[in-house]
Simulated scan of single mutants.
Amino acid sequence: MALQEIVEQTVTGLGYDLVEVERSAGGLLRITIDLPWSAQAVPGAPDAFVTVEDCEKVTRQLQFALEVDGADYKRLEISSPGIDRPLRHEQDFLRFEGETVDITLKQPLGAAAGGQVSANRKKFRGELEKTESGWQIVWRDPIETKPGQKPGKKKLAEQAVHALGFTLDELKEARLAPLVDFKGRKPRDAAAPGEQVGKIS
């Protein structure tokens, strides 16, 4: 049985989601797990997090399963997802809709957004949104201001907004953007009236 299959069967059998399987130098096998998520979860309810006890439970069971199968590894590490959590399945995208994500395309889409996006560009960061045909990320052009100065309402209203549509098959990688706000979570800004939208298809 393949290593990925052993790990996935063991992790899901214990009631967790398998996020990632990584092999690192020195024989380290790193497994990332998460608690199951449901689209029917109560909106606004606090997220539950993987605990040390969860990691120990999965470690014990995986050590046994890997030993039985004769898997080749030296050290086993079980952890919860970090702030740059990978998004791999449709459910991951549904779970984190509205969050800022980093995506890498398998192939560049060509010149777009009035020439502001390079024809060779594959990496983008923006807010994740569901569309009728798949998914898109939306981002705003940066506004130049003096240090310590906030942009005025007029500049915000004139700020160009771009949208990049994609399907999961077109992605090489997608992750939550590792953004840390030490002042606490801020409400997302609503689109300003009169803003310009550039669609990248």
Rank of each mutant, 00 (worst) to 15 (best):
K57Q: 13
E90M: 06
F96V: 04
V7H: 12
P43W: 05
A65M: 03
D102G: 01
T145K: 03
L29E: 08
A191T: 15
D141S: 09
A160M: 10
E99A: 06
F93I: 07
K130V: 01
T10I: 08
L14M: 10
K146Q: 13
H162F: 11
N120G: 05
K106I: 08
I137T: 04
P43M: 02
D69G: 01
T51S: 14
A25F: 06
T10N: 10
L164R: 06
R30D: 05
R60E: 03
R30G: 01
V197L: 15
G70M: 04
G152A: 09
T145L: 04
D34F: 03
R75E: 14
Y73H: 11
P151M: 06
G13W: 05
P43N: 04
G184N: 13
K154S: 15
G98Y: 00
G126S: 01
A25W: 05
T100L: 05
E158A: 14
D47G: 11
E67L: 06
S80G: 14
Q91T: 11
L176T: 05
A160C: 11
G165A: 10
T100K: 04
L168K: 12
G15M: 07
I33G: 02
D69S: 12
T131S: 08
G44F: 04
A39R: 13
A39E: 14
E22T: 12
R88L: 11
V11T: 04
G126K: 03
K153P: 13
L171S: 12
Y16N: 08
A2K: 15
E22Y: 07
A163D: 06
A174E: 10
Q61V: 07
K154W: 06
V11R: 09
T12S: 11
I143D: 06
T10D: 05
G13R: 02
H89Y: 11
G198N: 15
A157M: 13
V50S: 09
A71C: 03
A25S: 12
I31H: 02
T104Q: 11
D92N: 06
T100G: 00
A157T: 13
F166L: 04
V58E: 01
F182R: 15
L176H: 03
G194Y: 15
Q136D: 00
K130N: 00
F124K: 02
A177R: 01
R175S: 11
G15A: 04
R88V: 13
P193V: 15
T12P: 01
S38P: 03
G82L: 07
D47L: 12
D102A: 02
G82N: 08
K150Y: 07
I33F: 04
L28T: 14
T104M: 12
E173Q: 15
P147V: 02
D181Y: 12
G134C: 01
L76D: 09
A65I: 01
K199N: 15
E129R: 09
Q40R: 13
G13V: 02
G194T: 15
A157L: 09
P193G: 15
E53P: 07
A113R: 05
G82A: 03
E127G: 00
Q149C: 08
A112S: 12
K74V: 11
G134M: 00
F166T: 09
D47H: 13
P36H: 02
